[in-house]
């Protein structure tokens, strides 16, 4: 059960916040966005943090999920849940098809290819205006209902996103701590050694790429029904970069780090609004400073500091006799 202690803590925080502050803007509005971002960051972290495959186009799969569900519900009158499923199916197909050629690439070439893929899909969203509504976006998307319970308030959406995040975190933790998860971390460490241990690295990369895309697509499905209006801007290159930043900022290869990074990067612009014209500049500066001084990420960096402090206290208590 020690394995899931962190998850319990996260669940407690998610549950307690809206009970303490039910009408707080930062909880029910910013909070929902933070939870959504956290889902996306956790999914990207599986691919990037654990399997070591950088993706600068993750927002595209978020977009495919959102647009498929939005188009099917508004234009063809589908049930939202069925539409989200259809979005998952389409995302699964697209990500599976591109995964093989793309994941053969390494390093900067992989970064460029995923970036290109994201931009191509975004351009399709902008240009395919008969279906997607083009740059003006697509409105009138119905909200979801769960067991006859319409998600029609911010607070209800908060619960929905919170539950989804906890589910996704649970999923991610399970995977990392398993045969498949070790295979992913192994191919990050040394691809050739992983192969020699009998791991089909091509299949493992495809698996995690598709899985990460599916989670992003699910997030997209939820997002479009929560917003009731979407436009291509929510799924562009900048958002992909923002997702990468969340993962790196929290600390690569740490699921809670990804959640933490998502929270910081969602809150930061909200807090910087007071600086008005200086907002963009300060945001850039903070990003740079954090990465320069805590290159292993905020969450992991702080975690290490705490661990070191605890160790020192323990060795002091036992009258350290050396290693």
């Amino acid at each position: 059960m020690r394995r899931l202690a962190g998850l319990c803590l996260l669940a407690t925080i998610v549950v307690v916040l809206p009970i303490l502050f039910p009408d707080n803007y930062y909880v029910t509005v910013v909070g929902v966005t933070a939870l959504l971002h956290a889902i996306l960051a956790v999914s990207l972290n599986l691919l990037m943090g654990y399997a070591g495959q950088i993706s600068l186009g993750h927002a595209a799969f978020f977009g495919i999920g959102a647009y498929t569900s939005a188009i099917l519900t508004t234009r063809y009158g589908w049930d939202p849940w069925a539409a989200i499923m259809a979005g998952l199916a389409l995302t699964g197909l697209v990500s599976f098809l591109v995964s093989r050629p793309i994941l053969r690439l390494k390093g900067h070439y992989l970064a460029m290819a995923t970036l290109g893929l994201g931009i191509i899909i975004n351009i399709i969203l902008v240009q395919g205006d008969q279906l997607t509504g083009g740059p003006d976006g697509l409105g009138g998307i119905p909200t979801l209902s769960l067991f006859g319970w319409a998600l029609d308030t911010d607070l209800r959406w908060y619960w929905m996103m919170g539950a989804t995040l906890l589910g996704v975190v649970w999923l991610a933790l399970n995977i990392i701590d398993s045969r498949s998860g070790r295979a992913l971390r192994a191919l990050h460490g040394s691809e050739v050694a992983a192969e020699m241990m009998g791991i089909n690295t091509t299949a493992a990369k495809t698996g995690v790429f598709v899985l990460a895309a599916l989670i992003a697509s699910l997030a997209g499905g939820l997002f479009c029904h929560q917003q009731s209006f979407i436009s291509p801007d929510s799924f562009n290159f900048f958002f992909s970069i923002e997702l990468v930043t969340m993962v790196v900022l929290g600390g690569m290869a740490s699921t809670y780090g990804a959640v933490f990074g998502a929270l910081i990067l969602t809150l930061l612009p909200e807090l910087l609004v007071v600086f008005e014209d200086f907002e963009v500049m300060i945001f850039g500066a903070i990003l740079m400073l954090m990465m320069i001084f805590l290159p292993q990420g905020l969450f992991v960096g702080l975690q290490n500091l705490v661990l070191r402090w605890l160790n020192r206290r323990r060795s002091a208590a036992f009258g350290a006799v050396g290693e």
């Binding site: 399970n174 460490g189 698996g207």
Partner: peptide, 29 residues
């Protein structure tokens, strides 16, 4: 060619890959 991002035990557990069978799906759940 060690997996420097993993613990000693995990490194060797990767070696057991071929002796075990479970996939991504059963792991996730």
């Amino acid at each position: 060619q060690m997996f420097f991002n993993m613990s000693v035990l995990d490194n060797v557990m990767v070696g057991c890959h071929l002796r075990t069978r479970t996939g991504l799906f059963s792991a996730a759940l």
